[in-house]
Design a protein around this nucleic acid. Sequence first.
DNA 1: CGACAATTTGAATCAGATCAAGGCCCGTGG
DNA 2: CCACGGGCCTTGATCTGATTCAAATTGTCG
Lengths: 224, 224
Amino acid sequence: MYVTLSTDDQTGGAAPSISRPCVCARETQIRAGNYLFYEGDEVSWLYQVTAGVLRQTRLLENGRRQVIAFGYPGDVVGFPANGCHHTDCDALVDTRLQPYRKSLLEHPEKDVELHGELLQAALGEISAMQDHFMMLGRKSASERVASFLTVLAGRVGRCHDGVCKVDLPMRRADIADFLGLTTETVSRTLTQMRKSGIIKIENIHSIVVLKPAALTSLSQGGKG
Amino acid sequence: MYVTLSTDDQTGGAAPSISRPCVCARETQIRAGNYLFYEGDEVSWLYQVTAGVLRQTRLLENGRRQVIAFGYPGDVVGFPANGCHHTDCDALVDTRLQPYRKSLLEHPEKDVELHGELLQAALGEISAMQDHFMMLGRKSASERVASFLTVLAGRVGRCHDGVCKVDLPMRRADIADFLGLTTETVSRTLTQMRKSGIIKIENIHSIVVLKPAALTSLSQGGKG
DNA sequence: CGACAATTTGAATCAGATCAAGGCCCGTGG
DNA sequence: CCACGGGCCTTGATCTGATTCAAATTGTCG
């Protein structure tokens, strides 16, 4: 999951699910805190998340970290480059995964339809990442946090009566490393949104969006 | 071209060229300043740059702009998402392009080999963009500019006697919008590098890297 | 309950943005 | 050939949003 807020994308943000499970492998599971793969590992499988949340990270020598993406249901992780994984990937909560052999990507003739769906997932990833550049390069802290919550609410929010409950299984530091901020700034920004009545912080890992429109406005540079 | 400085990537940075020209279309040309496609256009072709430089940009409502990538020889531009282009793309200088039909991507059976090469280009793009995230999210201004020059020197620098001449066909504002900075900051950073003897600014569109090692060190957080 | 980790809050600092000139380059036209 | 004009680019001064450093607080789990 990247923070993409294309104004023309009114699909609600749900990632399309690949229609047909791979014939080769049964759905698998990974426990919270365990790693699915590490940077440098040879790629043998791609995975589509069916339930739970993954975290993909990349480390710089000096300890600086970037959370590249979170993997929510519908997302595909593990696209290879030079045959290798380029991020670490672990599970934030217990997560279920549908594996697809890498060879499906490389040998289209084996299953043209599934190959096409994986390819579409890769192309969608490119587009989403382009949007995310805009955020990292050009948005303020409150715009970033608001964008993040908006996208999350659209993807996995439980909405009724005009409010929208969103779980945040990741730590504040993960959000910060995803948005290019510090934990303190993320925390302050959330506090400010709470004080202005846009969100309610039920507990550290669960917030409620009270004013979705105000949040969207904030995410696009409005005063809130 | 993204700013990717994987420590383990010692290929020198040259993007691999797709081996075989498409049977369907002859190499084409676009003049400096002209647009190859616009955001929202339906994708009919992908293009591999064979000479020249492209610029891919994305605009936010309020005028903020992000340069998504520059297209240097070897790079492939135009990957579709939902059938559409998601950036504007124009030429910074006269540029030659090898077009590939979009259908090559979608119908692997038409030419398995070319399809595979386009797919590899897409996967490489994902990996390169992940590296670029690190830069936009976690690097300082001087690290960004140094990284940019280092990558450019590796890709298209004319090196001899330990120095490396690099053309900068884009304006300072393009570099700024690519790196998530302002033109003033880019300019100041270059001036500082000049004063510390790391680069020479021959003219606005041409710099010489006098101390490549120092530049690399700067790009990774060294004091320079 | 107690201890440690994560989060929040506060104060001070700083990197980069913003605002404002000034200089350079280059094409145009007298 | 040179004066003029308009983009860029550079430089300077100031401002500010976010980071940094430092507690205080809350939450978690044995």
